[in-house]
Design a protein around this nucleic acid. Sequence first.
RNA 1: UGGCCCAUGGUGUAAUGGUAACACUCCGGUUUUUGGUACCGUCAUUCUAGGUUCGAGUCCUAGUGGGCCAACCA
Length: 561
Amino acid sequence: MSETSKSLNFIEQIIEEDLSNGYSKNDLRFRFPPEPNGYLHIGHASSICLNFGLGLRYDAPVNLRFDDTNPAKEEQEFVDAIKQDVTWLGFKWDTERYASDYFQQLYDWAVQLIKDGKAYVDSQTSEEMAAQKGTPTEPGVDSPFRNRSVEENLSLFEGMKNGEYKEGTHVLRAKIDMASTNMLMRDPIMYRILHKAHHRTNTDWCIYPMYDWTHGESDYIEQVSHSLCTLEFLPHRELYDWFLDQVTSPDKLRPKQREFARRNLSHTVVSKRKLAQLVEQNIVNGWDDPRMPTISGLRRRGYTPESIRNFVDTIGIAKRDNLIDVSLLEFHVREHLNKITPRVMGVLDPLKLVITNYPEGQEEWLEAENSPEDESLGSRQVPFSKELYIEKADFKEEANKKFFRLKLGGEVRLKNGYIIKAESCTKNTEGDIVEVQCTYDPKSKSGSGTPESLRRVKGTLHWVSIKHAVAAEVRLYDRLFTDESPDTHKDKDFMDFINPDSLKTITGYVEPSLKSASVGERFQFQRIGYFCVDKDSSSDKLVFNRTVGLRDSWAKIQQKN
RNA sequence: UGGCCCAUGGUGUAAUGGUAACACUCCGGUUUUUGGUACCGUCAUUCUAGGUUCGAGUCCUAGUGGGCCAACCA
């Protein structure tokens, strides 16, 4: 219902238009075309959801195509990581393709272009060619090699292919227009010599096709109907079409390139070079550090694929520059985690609480609901005893009535347990409170149904029994950058905005039911936030990552004072 | 001193020539054994100037502002 009433984005409108102008639904085909030279990040998630979402919407196949035309940068490791990330996000590609699958076809077409007088071998240095290229405001000039004979071009190109020349000595160029207002049309390079092994073709080739020559022709070979890319490729469209003009036959579908604006997320950077810098300078601990905007980082942080997909759906797709506030991403992960995570209790900043009228040595197991959002998650038992930990921030000697927590002479409920009253506290020589003494009402036990248990007190605290608590490493993550758009300042480097407090590692105390938690499992630590078990955990040591905190209106009230 | 793209609340996106809306954020409130969730409410938007039209956020022109384009990267 909402599906039919939801408005179309401009890409879907283009497709609908094509459909009403003669395309059949069977003609639709899409592709996600990553270069395997790095890890996927949140920006790629938009493209993935767009292309695979279109596939789902129109019941059309979507290829996963690796744009692997540069063996100097590309590696199998990235191919594997990309496949894992796309799968994790919840999408299935139709076929797995590689631009390198088409090297022979591309070569044959290039030979044809030479024969047609539309491509030539240039034997200048890159500096010489750059000088001839002109600028956006001045036309370029023709290369002295532009009018070589077809025979000479053919033989040089074959020599290039056969490895007879050193890197940088020759390139194959399309013969288009050195005076075009579009710089990309000024005789673009189609092939360069690279004596490097390729992760798939090994040393079969020592010439490699450039992006522009490869991409559109690959779309054509795969019969991709709509080739979607980001806005910076808009000027490439003219060239995309020119190359297609050289090879298409009228009985086959002709792919269309259309461009959309890249989504920018606040408080982060996304370029491979910058992310690599964060890794290399040990600002973060690897590409999957939970602070990284990579898909693997978000996964390790505890994000769910659903929350990322919902986020991408919400931000939509358009053509204008944008900076999406990270709070929207956080909203979506909270929204999903709220529904699916079991609640547990953990104390991150412990203060000892002694219940003076609770029998020495006694312990009892209290029933605790696993989720108020999902009854099917059932319940568990948590141990209670005379000595507990509560959060330091949950006790004050005295406070005004806005403070719903524990203060001397005041009452609170211990979640799933009893109502207690603070009687006194002990301080160390520095004046810090190190212990709170309280009394409890034995008849106020949660769920017991007694009138005392039904009494309402304003505050409810989470706690753990000291004797039963499990110590765990807890990693508290915050934004990596203090500026919302760290890499757009002309006079400042993005590294100047690194948040020094993006990771705080502490020891917390969690209820014993967590002892058996497995890597990747997600929980809500009640009143604190969402956490997941990190892969650094071992059988004798739990490590938790904070995915995101709960919304905290108390923190806002405090900030205002 | 060129070409191309873009311009709607604080943010993102819709409105397809006919009442400017939805989500997030912010702020306020109700409920609550999580200061969570849920629910209700408040504030706030068509870059400017002309033109076309009965009617313009939408079409046209100009201006302004932002972005992209001179790798043997993708």
